[in-house]
Design a protein around this nucleic acid. Structure first.
Lengths: 154, 154
DNA sequence: CCTTGATGGTACGGAACTCATATTATATTC
DNA sequence: GAATATAATATGAGTTCCGTACCATCAAGG
């Protein structure tokens, strides 16, 4: 028996697993955002802000793919609920710098703790070499998703 | 040097990579849903319907975590745009069976083709044994996300 | 049967959200 | 320093969300 069918089959399994994982993660995000009284999109933006440090609404618009006017509403809600701060950019006084409020990340993390401990438990069953492979794969898939977004039609 | 710090560090890398991957996949879904003139939530539901075959709005509500009244709106839009069919359940005439319209899956898949070919290219760089490990890991993470949703507070 | 209570799905209406466009303030270019 | 471009927000019309009410159907007990 050739090894090609087996490899092709594995490719399909990987593709489907990734898609199903993406769906479940989306549902998890949805539930978490509900608990925080936020929209899924708002939580995504908060995540980006927390990770990419202080940034302007326009870069946030580019990173998230949202409409600029929508972003104003997102930031209004996040600011009102005390998740972020808006301050003027001293170098460009048209611009605004958005930053995540320190110390509130724990509230979000707490809701992901179940998922995180499960992932830690799963990780424990792999060797360090395997973990390195897994981490690299995930990283490359993330990059692939980023590229895929850029290359969408329209 | 002990191997513990290295392993702990890898755990952290895995966790972060998974989270970033989840975010990028969410952004990809958002863009894809925009192209299809659907909401992200509508696309998620369509995905569930396509995968879990004909099912009732109430099970769909349970699987997606949405409010029942919201689900009616989702299904109205999906049906109006020709993505799904609603038919009465012959065994329980209160119930409705929702099924995905055959032949329109390609329109969705086409928008994910960039991502899929990238993932195939990434997969090509791993041995079959490694692919098996990856597939298993993804599957277990999916299950973990599913459990994590069930065990959220409230 | 025929009540009684539970369940599946949807209708309704007010609140919240999205987004095209207009507006204001500042920066850049010639 | 006038013209143009850019950053962010205001505005308002259209859409979506969801608590509630409602109707149809089923299941159990008398």
């Amino acid at each position: 028996m050739s090894s090609v069918p087996s490899r092709a089959k594995l490719n399909g399994v990987i593709r489907d697993s990734l898609r199903e994982l993406g769906l479940q993660l989306a549902l998890l995000n949805f539930q978490v955002s509900n608990r925080l009284k936020l929209n899924p999109g708002d939580l995504n933006c908060l995540d980006i802000i927390g990770r990419h440090g202080p940034l302007s609404p326009s870069t946030l618009t580019r990173l998230s793919g949202m409409h600029p006017a929508t972003m104003t509403g997102v930031l209004d809600r996040l600011e009102k609920a005390g998740w972020i701060n808006r301050e003027r950019d001293p170098n460009d006084r048209r611009a605004v710098l958005v930053s995540a409020v320190k110390g509130r990340g724990a509230e979000v993390l707490k809701l992901y703790s179940g998922m995180n401990t499960s992932v830690a438990a799963i990780s424990a069953s792999y060797s360090e070499a395997e973990l390195a492979v897994l981490a690299d794969f995930l990283q490359r898939c993330k990059d692939a998703a980023e590229e895929a977004i850029d290359e969408l039609p329209d």
